[in-house]
Design a protein around this nucleic acid. Structure first.
Length: 944
RNA sequence: GCCGGGGUGAUGGAAUUGGUAGACAUAGGGGACUUAAAAUCCCCGGACGGAAACGUCUUGUGGGUUCGAUUCCCACCCCCGGCACCA
């Protein structure tokens, strides 16, 4: 039978009108069984692109599925309508930002409706509407009253092209995220929200959320918690500098102190230092650099404050003080102690300025291969030893020992006996073990710890290996103890040969240190030259050491407060006015919404915010508050608008409250929130913070706004590159809808890959065509159905599809859900004449994916109401249990065939069936396998 | 560099969490229908060998645990994402 292509345009239009008439998607917020399915509301750019489709169509599939499952689903939509593009269009074409935005919203509504998504338009919000931003302002004033909003002068990222302040996240590689212009820094008085007060809670409450690891990790990294200690260093000139360190255990290795160029102590110190001109020069230089430039050039720079020293509180040594811009003024205390032996950055700095690099922790190497694997939980014997690189008297080779009983290669080693120094031990060992008598230039290369099991002595050992270098002056040699000589042969090897020859890791370390020089070790281990703590484990005594120098525990966060001021027009006006003394006051609720003035010249001047040009605003303030009062001219970051929109959906028309508390109690937190990965550390973190602040104000019912969170992937152009106008690979969804229909696009996007994992998928027209074919086949099949009893095979196929689709959709694995539908269709096409009843169930399963086609066919077959009011078909679970299963038969783990048996068949039956297979029988001439592993319904493995 | 997530056919991706690897599709090949093409339908579809039955190999690489490993453990290589002078 020839397939006909179904008339998608007609069908889709009709179905959409039907849903509208039935008000099918208006959620009754009072009804039971709430399920809040949320997606990030779009910016009204004016054109619906394929990314929107991916975001909304696939979440719509989920929303429809949840409804079929009996949930009362809220699936709202709105517009994140403030923002730069409207203003840029205004600057460019003289358009009114408000009119431009509203026109775009109109256009997008039409496009959005063509998707056939079940959005509840009755609850639409637009952040630029005074009805909405009135509450953004109200919430801001609440935060202000709670002390969570404050003003401070800060250096901000400034885009010279957009003439605006950028959030840290909007700066990508030192360039403006939007226009790519290099960002500069500027100092302005700004409004900030105290997100740092919530750092710990944002971190703690992240833990139990059912989110993917990568999302949580990104947020954790952004918060950047470090636990450490605040230590105090006294200066020779009488001052004190506090430093923050996460490694107080390395304080015996602190050889200098660094102050950030912004450090408050510097001004005072400048008065006494003899090289103040040089220091001032340096300060000027770094001030001119942006933070970006400072970190771009990783070459460390700094200037010593001549004549000033600090006392290392542990060693009591006087150490130099530097100003260097590798220390940030904005983090910790703006001062650090330099520990070059155990910090990469301090190491670089010390090398450049020729500072000593003492080692205070020995890197440990634990033996993990035979012989001598370190035995955890057994007593450990600690002693000192030496590892010596002995250079040949003439050649550029080194003495190594090739052991006779074991396949080992080592350097010369020895135990440091009571009453001997390591240096003495070196000379002693050279003589005793090799007979060479004249060595010189003994030089220490540091310490390395070896932890291993000493097989002959049957004990765990922890040896502090003092590494030395020595040179033989000549080949004068005496006879050695034959017992010593019997253990190993002496070989002379080059550095390169040693690398292959040396067995223990500790000796490899010794060689590396000799060849490359010392490199800083940032881990833990036993302490060296650390006063009373020498020999102890650095990790164990960290806090003891901190306390011994009067340090106090402290936690630092990398996250900074959220700067929310924007020197732009098209945003929510900050609801603040200043009295004649310049003190900030919140605009009281009766004056909200605090309207965005319209008599504004929004051409950026770079000097003041566009609102400063409004006469009306100035007059308004004087009229309402009195003479001499002035307005705030900045607008809010649009991330503030979007930090609470999901609470407004619940009660979008309320003009007494931002949302109804009872409804919030019922509907929050959002059950499933889907959006783009790009919002992981901005929107998602900001809205969590904002919501928590609201929670503390008693405004919302829970401490977290979102339960599940899913980040979606990206649709690429047909060429596999990111869609962009310049590449000419942009797919216009409107065209695709014309050609294939909305349903085909929806199913295609669901099938492209798992929605639960963000992947990158090229747009493949041939694949879309195949999805359309799939829908056409369903359409064709509808002509074949008959009024008849449903068959067992139909029922089984339906039962497993219903089960599979449901469990896959639950986990957002839309691709396998579609594949289950395809399998179902394949099964139905094999039926002589599928029953109408069964086909109807197929349509219910299809309905979330292809809502228009399913609606049409449902109606054609005489269905009452809408298919989208039908509930998910339920089947007897026994239908999922197959009568027989095909299981693999293995011989010694190798597949040799398969048998079809009842899932509950006994082992005897299974073995008997397997023995029918010639290949299996052939493997057991005796007729009996030695061992049988039988997992009913899974596998039969026969082992000889 | 550090932290996460991954590497499965020509391609997108499956695999009940240790049980016949490659579901479902796409590209490709062959056939049917047709004067022909399109559409549609049927068959093949990891690699190598073989006419075939079949055999050997195969989930980034190398080891290990196990009757059995894509799945668990160790080492290494590569890709993607986040952070990056945060002490």
């Amino acid at each position: 039978m020839a397939k006909q292509s179904y008339p998608h345009k007609e069908i889709e239009k009709k179905a959409q009108e039907k849903w509208e008439t039935l008000s099918l998607h208006v959620t009754d917020l009072e009804a039971n069984d709430p399920y809040y399915a949320l997606f990030e509301f779009p910016y009204p750019s004016g054109d619906l692109h394929i990314g929107h489709w991916y975001a909304f169509a696939v979440t719509d599939i989920f929303a429809r599925f949840k409804r079929a499952q009996g949930k009362n689903v809220l699936f709202p939509i709105g517009f994140d309508a403030f923002g730069l593009p409207a203003e840029n269009a205004a600057i460019k074409n003289g358009a009114d930002p408000a009119a431009w935005t509203l026109a775009n919203m109109d256009r997008m509504r039409t496009q959005l409706k063509s998707m056939g998504a079940s959005f509840d338009w009755s609850k639409e919000v637009a952040t630029c509407s005074p009805d909405y931003y009135r509450w953004t302002q109200w919430l801001f004033t609440k935060l202000f009253e709670k002390g969570l909003a404050y003003r401070a002068e800060a250096s901000v990222k400034w885009c010279p092209k957009d003439q605006t302040v950028l959030a840290n996240e909007q700066v990508v590689d030192g360039h403006c995220e939007r226009c790519g212009t290099a960002v500069i820094e500027k100092r302005l008085t700004q409004w900030f929200l105290k997100i740092t007060d919530y750092a710990e809670r944002l971190l703690q409450d992240l833990e139990p959320l059912p989110w993917r690891q990568d999302i949580k990790e990104a947020q954790r990294a952004w918060i950047g918690k470090s636990e450490g200690a605040r230590l105090s260093f006294s200066f020779s000139a009488g001052q004190k500098a506090e430093v923050f360190t996460t490694r107080p255990d390395t304080i015996y290795g602190a050889t200098y102190v660094v102050l950030a160029p912004e450090h408050s102590l510097i001004d005072e110190l400048l008065e006494t230092v003899p090289n103040s001109i040089e220091v001032r020069e340096y300060l000027k230089l770094t001030a001119r650099k942006t933070e970006r430039e400072r970190s771009e050039n990783k070459e460390k720079t700094g200037v010593r404050l001549e004549g000033v020293t600090a006392t290392n509180p542990a060693t009591k040594e006087e150490i130099p003080v530097y100003v260097a811009d590798y220390v940030l003024g904005s983090y910790g205390t703006g001062a650090v102690m330099g520990v070059p032996g155990h910090d990469e950055r301090d190491f670089e700095f010390s090398k450049k300025y020729d500072l000593p690099i003492p080692q205070v922790i020995a890197p440990p190497f634990k033996q993990t291969t035979e012989p001598g694997i370190f035995r955890e939980n057994e007593p450990v014997f600690v002693n000192d030893g030496v590892i010596t690189l002995v250079k040949h008297w003439k050649d550029d080779t080194f003495l190594a020992l090739k052991w006779k009983k074991v396949d080992w290669g080592t350097l010369l080693t020895g135990v440091v006996d009571e009453g001997f120094t390591p240096e003495e031990t070196v000379l002693k060992e050279i003589r005793e073990e090799t007979g060479y008598m004249n060595a010189k230039a003994v030089r220490s290369l540091g310490v390395v710890d070896g932890l291993f099991y000493h097989v002959p002595k049957a004990i765990n050992k922890h040896v502090h290996g003092h590494i030395f270098y020595a040179e033989l002056t000549d080949d004068t040699r005496e006879a050695i103890d034959p017992e010593e000589g019997a253990k190993h042969d002496i070989v002379w090897l080059t550095k390169e040969e040693l690398k292959d020859f040396l067995t223990p890791d500790t000796h490899q370390y010794a060689l590396r240190t000799f060849v490359q020089g010392y490199t800083p070790y940032g881990g833990s281990g036993s302490l060296i030259d650390s006063g009373p703590f020498t020999g102890r484990d650095s990790e164990e005594v960290t806090w003891e050491i901190a306390e011994s120098v009067g340090g106090i525990r402290e936690t630092q966060y990398r996250m900074r407060d959220w700067g929310v001021s924007r020197q732009r027009y098209w945003g929510c006006p900050i609801p603040i006015v200043y009295d004649p003394d310049g003190k900030a006051h919140p605009v009281p609720p009766e004056h909200l919404p605090w309207l965005l003035p319209t008599d504004v010249d929004f051409t950026p001047t770079g000097e003041a915010s566009p609102l400063a040009s409004s006469e009306e605003l100035r007059e308004r303030v004087e009229r309402l508050f009195g003479k001499g009062w002035t307005p705030e001219f900045d607008t809010l970051d649009t991330f503030v608008d979007s930090s609470w929109y999901f609470t407004r959906y619940l009660d979008s028309k309320n003009d007494l409250q931002f949302s109804d508390p009872e409804l919030m109690k019922k509907w929050l937190p959002v059950d499933r929130y889907s959006g783009g990965s790009e919002h992981t550390t901005m929107h998602l973190l900001y809205s969590r913070f904002f919501y928590k602040a609201m929670f503390d104000l008693g405004l919302v019912p829970t401490k977290e706004p979102f339960n599940e969170r899913f980040n979606r992937g990206l649709i690429l152009g047909p060429d596999g590159a990111k869609m962009s106008k310049s590449k000419g690979n942009v797919i216009n969804p409107d065209d695709a809808v014309q050609q294939y229909g909305a349903d085909a696009i929806r199913v295609y996007l669901a099938f492209i890959g798992p929605y639960s994992e963000p992947g990158h998928y090229p747009w493949k027209p041939e694949s879309l065509a195949s999805i359309r074919r799939f829908l056409d086949r369903i359409y064709a099949l509808s002509g074949k159905v008959v009024d008849a009893e449903r068959t067992g095979s139909e029922m089984r196929a339906l039962a497993s599809a219903a089960h599979r689709v449901a469990s896959d959709l639950e986990r957002f694995k839309t691709n396998t859900a579609v594949s289950a539908l395809m399998i179902l269709l394949n099964a139905f096409e094999d039926e002589e004449s599928p029953s109408k009843e069964s086909f109807n169930d197929l349509l219910v399963l299809l309905a979330p994916f292809a809502p228009h086609l399913a609606e049409h066919l449902y109606e054609t077959l005489g269905g009452e109401g809408s298919i989208h009011q039908q509930s998910w078909p339920e089947f007897d679970p026994s239908l999922l249990v197959k009568e027989t299963v095909v299981i693999g038969v293995q011989v010694a783990g190798k597949t040799r065939g398969s048998i079809e048996i009842a899932p509950e068949a006994s082992q005897e039956e299974a073995v008997a069936a397997a023995m029918e297979l010639p290949k299996v029988a052939g493997a057991f001439p005796g007729g009996k396998p030695g061992k049988v592993i039988y997992k009913p319904g899974r596998i039969l493995n026969l082992v000889p």
